[in-house]
Design a protein around this nucleic acid. Structure first.
Lengths: 169, 169
DNA sequence: GTAAGTCGGTTGAAATCTCAACCGCGTCGG
DNA sequence: CCGACGCGGTTGAGATTTCAACCGACTTAC
C-alpha cells in the first residue's frame, strides 16, 4: 500500500453525512421499537425473517446466514426470545445436530403489533422526505455498494474491482 | 393514525438494501479497525473528533454532542481510552464541573496508524464502486434525510416536514 | 467399528452499551 | 448567606454482543 488516497471534500462530506444519518436513524428506530414494543431492532429482524419463512420456521444456521448474525449472538438472542414465548426451538428429527427455530403465534402477533409503528417510523424518517426519483437513485446506489460487499464476503477481502469474476472456492 | 401506509415494492426493496448494506458495511469497517488497530469504530470516531479540535481538546459535553453519544457511554469509553494512554482527562480550572478530554501524543499516533487502513476500506467499499454522479446524489439524499432527523431531535418527534436547518460539517 | 475431522449449536466470561441514580459545582431568588 | 435547582459528569447494575472454548451428532478413512 504505497500511498493513502484520502477522501476529497465531496467524498468526505458524503461519508460524514452517511455516518451521521445512520447513527441518528438507527437511534430513532431503536428507540421507537423499544418503547412501543420492547423489542430491540435486532430481535425484530429475526422475527421478520422467521415470519416470512415457510411454516415460520428456519434452522439456526439459516437464520444466522440471512440476518448475518453470529451463531453465538443468535443463540443468546433466541434464548431471550424463547423466554418471552415468541419463538420455540425444536430439534430436527433427521439431523439431530440442527435446531429449528419456529415463530409462535404469540411471536407473530407481537410482530403484528410492532410492525405498523416501525414501518411508520421508517416511512416518516426516510421515504417521505425523498422524491420518487431519489428513492430510485438511493436504491441503485445501495445495490451497487451491496454487491461489492457481498463479493467481499465470500472471497477474503478483494478490492471490489472486478464485476463478474467468480471466487476460487 | 388511522391506517398504516405500508411500503410499496420499490420502498421495501430500497429499505432492505439499506439495512443490509449498513449491516455488512459496518461489520467490514469494525472488523478492519479492530484487527488493524484494536480500536472499535466508536472509539475511532471520538479520537478523530478530538484530533480535529483546537489543542486536541474538548469538554466531555462537547464531545458527546458532536459524536451523539450519551454522556454515560462517553464516560465509560473515556475511562477505557485513558487506560490505553490515548486520552487524558483534565479538570477545568474555572468551572470545576467540566472535564476536558485531551488527545495525547500516543493517541494521536495511534490514530495516524489507524487512519490509512480505515480510509482505504471506506474508499474501496463505498466510493470506488460509485460514479461521481452517484456520489453527488447520495450526498443529497443523505442530507435530506438528515435534516429531518435533526429536526426531530430537537422537538419531540415531529413529522419531519420542515425544510429547516442545513446539514452540519 | 472406530478414531479423526467437521458441522450445528451452545455456553461462560469479558467487553461494551444503556438506564437510572448519584455527586459536586454553579447559579439564581430571596 | 441560604436553599433549591440545573448542569457536567460519573458510577453501578443490567442487558446485549463478542470471543473462545466446548459438546454432541454426522462423515469419512482406515
Amino acid at each position: 500500500m504505497p500511498e493513502t488516497r484520502w477522501l476529497d471534500d465531496e467524498e468526505q462530506g458524503t461519508w460524514r453525512a452517511y455516518i451521521w444519518t445512520n447513527h441518528l436513524l438507527w437511534e430513532a428506530l431503536e428507540r421507537q421499537l423499544q418503547q412501543d414494543s420492547g423489542i430491540p431492532h435486532a430481535y425484530y429482524i429475526m422475527l421478520v425473517c422467521l415470519s416470512e419463512s415457510p411454516d415460520r420456521t428456519m434452522t439456526m444456521t439459516q437464520l444466522a446466514s440471512v440476518t448475518q448474525f453470529s451463531a453465538s449472538r443468535l443463540s443468546h438472542a433466541m434464548a431471550r426470545l424463547e423466554e418471552k414465548g415468541w419463538v420455540r426451538r425444536i430439534k430436527h428429527e433427521e439431523d439431530r445436530r440442527t435446531t429449528m427455530a419456529k415463530l409462535t403465534d404469540e411471536g407473530f402477533s407481537a410482530l403484528e403489533r410492532a410492525a405498523p409503528g416501525h414501518v411508520d417510523e421508517v416511512r416518516r424518517r426516510v421515504f417521505d422526505p425523498l422524491s420518487r426519483e431519489q428513492i430510485r437513485q438511493f436504491h441503485d446506489i445501495l445495490a451497487t455498494i451491496l454487491s461489492g460487499l457481498e463479493a467481499a464476503e465470500e472471497s477474503g477481502t478483494p478490492t471490489a474491482e472486478e464485476p463478474g469474476t467468480s471466487a476460487p472456492e
